[in-house]
Measured scan of single mutants.
Amino acid sequence: MATDAALRRLLRLHRTEIAVAVDSAFPLLHALADHDVVPEDKFQETLHLKEKEGCPQAFHALLSWLLTQDSTAILDFWRVLFKDYNLERYGRLQPILDSFPKDVDLSQPRKGRKPPAVPKALVPPPRLPTKRKASEEARAAAPAALTPRGTASPGSQLKAKPPKKPESSAEQQRLPLGNGIQTMSASVQRAVAMSSGDVPGARGAVEGILIQQVFESGGSKKCIQVGGEFYTPSKFEDSGSGKNKARSSSGPKPLVRAKGAQGAAPGGGEARLGQQGSVPAPLALPSDPQLHQKNEDECAVCRDGGELICCDGCPRAFHLACLSPPLREIPSGTWRCSSCLQATVQEVQPRAEEPRPQEPPVETPLPPGLRSAGEEVRGPPGEPLAGMDTTLVYKHLPAPPSAAPLPGLDSSALHPLLCVGPEGQQNLAPGARCGVCGDGTDVLRCTHCAAAFHWRCHFPAGTSRPGTGLRCRSCSGDVTPAPVEGVLAPSPARLAPGPAKDDTASHEPALH
């Protein structure tokens, strides 16, 4: 009773807030009518008042009428009001819900409408889902798969039609296919003929059939049928067999079959498995989609049935006599038709004709302190090069084509190399640097090759510096006499390219 009084008091307290929050009759008014909170006449009256005075006034009048009803109607109103779709449509209802007392429970059932309790003993237990329907569909599909699609060729003596089998029958139906081979029951999904010589313990000319048996419980189990008994694959494991010639990621696949039913060829011909030897223990289905393919039931050349050999690369099948050149017997292992072999060759040939990528240039590290003349020119003028003790990398590039010797140069053309002071002394051009340390401070000019250098860098042994005729380390061993002091540049003949010694390969005349 306390809860009923509290709900009535809360409705009177929030009546105006609810009326202002509800700006549309749908969905709240319609939901109240659906849950029998508002009768039909009051529903029509509220809609009429909404058209006349507006939605807030109409709902305020409806809530005032609701306060005169019993506690069950008020409880049902609060339940409908706080439904998710009403809270989404009328956003101003959320503060009312947040301020609702926590001790007021809106989930209690309506009085007088409590459903009768059902004894637990009368409640049926839930049924577990079964796979009976899938099993029945598999039974119905198996006879259809064994139905012949056409008439065999005159040369083929193997013609068999499976008798119709009602689904209610649980007995196995067997077809006489000759040579002791028996087909599987209607619940078998796949059958492959297997030679009895590969099964340990088999006697006589009995041949087993590799099947997948579907049981009534819905589970499946792969086994071997020899005669009327089934054997699990673990009985046929043979770890010492060295003649297993397995197909790549293979499961067994029928390579020879008669049109209309699988079996042995007439005249004692023995149908073979995809792999010879003992049956392997793992009978998992292969991951290669080509091995799941269903080959055609007629020859791809003459479009006739009979004894066919199936290609492992495509769905086509052929007569042995229709092949070019014809085959006398079934080859062992994987067999592919000429079209598949030709496609494989065409895929391999473009790969062989692809040009080989060019090898990157060989990189040879230079000892610290040495650099090529090109690196000396590329440096920024007026700045010493940083990191001189790091190992430089010199790339061996292809030799350029031989060019004509340089033409003779006048001494005026070499004027930018040297600057003559007032006393006739050779001065260095701006930006000249030593080729060893890279520093341009207090550098000297070689009178023979006009290269800038430090005496301490080229002659670290402490050799005394002569007063005139300074030469760098590369030119100090040259027998050519030094030019007379005061000459602007060496003779043009000295600039012609010539053979250089091994220790002077990195010091070429550089223009500054």
Rank of each mutant, 00 (worst) to 15 (best):
S135M: 01
P162T: 05
A145L: 13
A264Q: 05
G208Y: 01
F236R: 04
L255T: 04
R190Q: 13
L255I: 09
P115Y: 09
N244E: 03
S217Q: 04
D76F: 01
T232N: 08
F236I: 10
E136M: 04
M184F: 06
A246D: 08
I224K: 07
V37M: 00
A6S: 03
D98V: 03
T147W: 15
L66S: 01
G180H: 14
P154M: 01
P252H: 05
A205Y: 02
K52L: 11
K164N: 15
P200S: 11
R110P: 05
F26W: 13
P148V: 14
G150S: 15
L28I: 05
K159Y: 14
H30F: 02
K161H: 08
P129M: 05
G204Y: 02
C223R: 07
A33N: 15
I224N: 04
D34H: 15
L66H: 03
A265Q: 04
A265I: 09
G268R: 11
Q213F: 00
Q212T: 04
S234M: 12
D41L: 05
D4L: 02
S107T: 07
V22T: 01
R272V: 08
G112C: 09
T3M: 15
E167W: 15
A73S: 02
S156A: 09
L122Q: 03
P116R: 04
F236N: 15
L7C: 00
D238F: 10
A121L: 11
D4V: 03
T46C: 08
A264M: 10
P129I: 03
S71Q: 15
A61W: 15
D98M: 15
R139I: 10
K83H: 03
R92V: 01
V199Q: 07
Y85R: 00
T130F: 15
L158A: 08
D76S: 04
L175I: 06
E53T: 14
F215H: 07
Q69I: 00
P125I: 14
Y85K: 00
G218W: 00
L49M: 05
F215R: 03
K159C: 12
N179H: 15
P27D: 00
G251N: 01
C55D: 04
L75N: 10
K159T: 11
D70N: 10
R203A: 12
S169F: 15
L128E: 02
L106C: 01
T46I: 04
V256C: 07
L47W: 00
R113F: 12
R110Y: 15
A264F: 10
E270A: 07
I224W: 11
R190W: 02
F77C: 02
G260N: 12
L146R: 03
E17T: 04
L75S: 08
K50L: 04
K235L: 08
V199W: 05
P266C: 11
R12M: 04
I181W: 12
T147P: 02
I209S: 03
T72G: 02
S168Q: 04
N244C: 04
K120V: 10
